[in-house]
Amino acid sequence: MTRRCHSLLAVIFLATMASLAAAKENYRFPAVGQETGVLTIHAVADLSAIEPMIRDFQESQPGITVDYTDYLTNELYDLLVAQCAKGETMADIVISSSVDHIAKLANDGCAQTYSSLNTSRTPDWAKWRDEVFGFTFEPAVIVYNRNLVPAADVPRTHHDLAELLRTKPQLYDGKIGTYDIEQSGIGYLFAFFDTQQSNIFGRLLESFGRSRAALRCCTGELLARIESGELLIGYNLLSSYAYGRYKAGAPIGIVMPRDYTLVLSRTAMIPKTAGHPDLGRKFLDYAVSSRGQAVAAEKSFFFSFDRPVPPGVDAVDPGTGSGVYRPIVIGPALLSTLDRQNRRRFLSEWKASMERD
Rank of each mutant, 00 (worst) to 15 (best):
H6I: 15
V11N: 04
V11G: 10
I12H: 08
I12P: 03
L14F: 00
A15I: 12
A15H: 02
M17F: 12
L20P: 05
L20G: 04
E25M: 14
Y27Q: 06
V32Y: 12
V32G: 11
Q34H: 13
E35N: 08
G37H: 04
L39N: 02
V44N: 02
L47N: 03
D56K: 13
Q58C: 07
E59K: 07
E59V: 10
T65F: 11
V66R: 00
D67P: 01
D67H: 06
T69Q: 04
Y71N: 07
L72G: 06
N74D: 14
N74T: 07
N74Q: 10
N74H: 08
A82K: 03
A82C: 12
C84P: 01
A85S: 09
E88V: 12
S96G: 05
V99T: 10
H101F: 15
I102W: 09
K104A: 15
N107I: 02
G109P: 02
G109Y: 01
C110Q: 01
A111K: 04
T113I: 13
T113N: 15
S116K: 00
N118C: 02
N118K: 05
D124H: 09
K127L: 14
R129C: 06
D130L: 13
E138P: 00
N145C: 14
P150Y: 11
P150Q: 05
V154N: 13
T157E: 06
H159M: 15
A162G: 03
Y172W: 12
D173K: 09
D180T: 01
G187L: 07
Y188E: 11
F190D: 01
F192M: 04
T195C: 12
T195R: 08
N199W: 15
F201P: 00
F201R: 00
L205G: 09
L205W: 11
G209E: 13
R210Q: 14
R210G: 12
R216E: 11
G220I: 06
A224D: 11
I233D: 10
S240K: 01
Y241H: 14
Y241E: 14
Y243L: 05
G249C: 09
G249A: 14
P251L: 13
V255R: 05
R258W: 08
Y260M: 05
Y260T: 03
Y260G: 02
T261D: 08
T261Y: 04
L262Q: 03
S265T: 08
H276K: 04
P277T: 10
K282D: 07
L284K: 06
D285R: 08
A287P: 02
S290I: 11
Q293A: 05
A297P: 03
K299S: 14
F301M: 06
P311G: 06
G312H: 02
A315S: 04
D317S: 13
P318K: 01
T320L: 12
T320G: 01
S322E: 05
V324E: 13
P327H: 04
A333Y: 10
L334D: 03
T337V: 10
R345A: 15
K351G: 03
A352Y: 10
S353G: 04
E355Y: 13
E355F: 14
R356V: 15
R356K: 15
D357V: 15
